[in-house]
Design a protein around this nucleic acid. Structure first.
Lengths: 199, 199
DNA sequence: TCCTTATGTGAATCTGATTTCACATTAGCT
DNA sequence: AGCTAATGTGAAATCAGATTCACATAAGGA
């Protein structure tokens, strides 16, 4: 295997992506430096040229996930102006994300997060609540434009949204793809829709 | 510390409970044999008198959790006959469970489950789906008695229920108790109620 | 009470992973 | 082309935690 030298900024990206790929692969229990290195055809020690240690690498991964979520949201915002449609689009996209990026729930729930570093848990908490806040914002805008009924609290809708997506990820995961992801999302959407637009 | 000899059936119980206690303690990252032993004032090696290995111990813990969930449900069934009240009672109890037994989400999400053993993941999947099935049953009974509208699928209600409880656990956890658990459950209940009884 | 066996112990071992280090190579600048 | 700093490597050090084992002890039945 040919392993070229890479400028560290690119290599860092590659490492993060390799890590996500590994985590998305159902077989992988815990993220090992060795595995990440192999994925790139590098020696484990090479990783330390780019990250101080495993911990720093994990931080970079977290950041990458945050960005993915945010980007997702931006795209939906551009895709349509209507709040209800936006919520739906978010759900659908999230379904895809769950399929393709199993890494996300994997990380969110992993011991890495819950372990030692209180700091990391807080970081994750901020990512999640930040995401919720963005969804909430969509709802609030929708309410202002009369697309969404006023008497449900936006904050609650956001949490319900989260509540659709998160267990779906979990169940899909546990079932090794057996769980009917789309079905669940459709069902949930029907109810959410009714909840949000009807009186 | 005085450490008496214990018949293995009692000791097993103690070990499982010690493990849960450790996991419920926010400080604990991963469940270490050493920690479990210390909690009981035993030498680590003593644990191996009661469980073949760490893995067997984890299995016992899973089983214990399954029992807890099931017991919870049984109590609610006895508490009231009305399906809607039952759902509410379940929510409230679950809130308590989240507070007191942080161990449960901890285990459910842990690497222990997702790691190596496919078998264990399946076991967990069965526990969760079993629980969902029981909630679904409550809904179905409620529908038969006219307490719950017929045109929402029981299966979906069960998942929504799960969707209320699970993210709550996660957020409460991440926030180190800062997250407004009761508020969330109340809000969610209001919506669920409307969804389930209104047309 | 005596014996047998289950339970407990501490030290040693095994395992699997992260990390460090001295050395090699390549990229890219002048 | 030649130099230098950045990147990569393999072997070895380190670490943490699970597990084993030979030995100790106490519980409970005969």
């Amino acid at each position: 295997m040919r392993t070229e030298k890479m400028p560290t900024d690119i290599r860092k990206e590659q490492i993060v992506e390799a890590a996500l790929a590994i985590l998305s692969d159902n077989a992988a229990p815990k993220l090992k430096m060795t595995d990440v290195a192999r994925q790139l055809g590098l020696a484990p020690s090479a990783l330390y040229r780019h990250f101080k240690n495993r911990d720093a690498m994990l931080s970079a991964i977290l950041e990458h996930i945050r960005t993915m979520l945010h980007t997702n949201l931006e795209k939906v915002r551009q895709q349509t102006d209507n709040a209800v449609e936006r919520l739906h689009a978010m759900l659908v996209r999230h379904g895809r994300l769950i399929r393709e990026q199993q890494a996300i729930p994997r990380i969110v729930f992993s011991d890495e997060i819950w372990g030692q570093k209180k700091e990391r848990r807080q970081r994750m908490y901020r990512i999640v609540t930040g995401y919720l806040a963005e969804i909430e914002a969509i709802v609030v805008e929708g309410q202002a434009k009369g697309e969404i009924r006023m008497d449900v609290e936006a904050r609650v809708v956001a949490k319900i949204f989260f509540g659709i997506v998160q267990p779906a990820a979990l169940l899909w995961h546990m079932s090794e793809g057996d769980f009917d992801l789309e079905g669940h999302i459709n069902d949930a959407w029907t109810l959410l829709l009714e909840m949000v637009v009807r009186r």
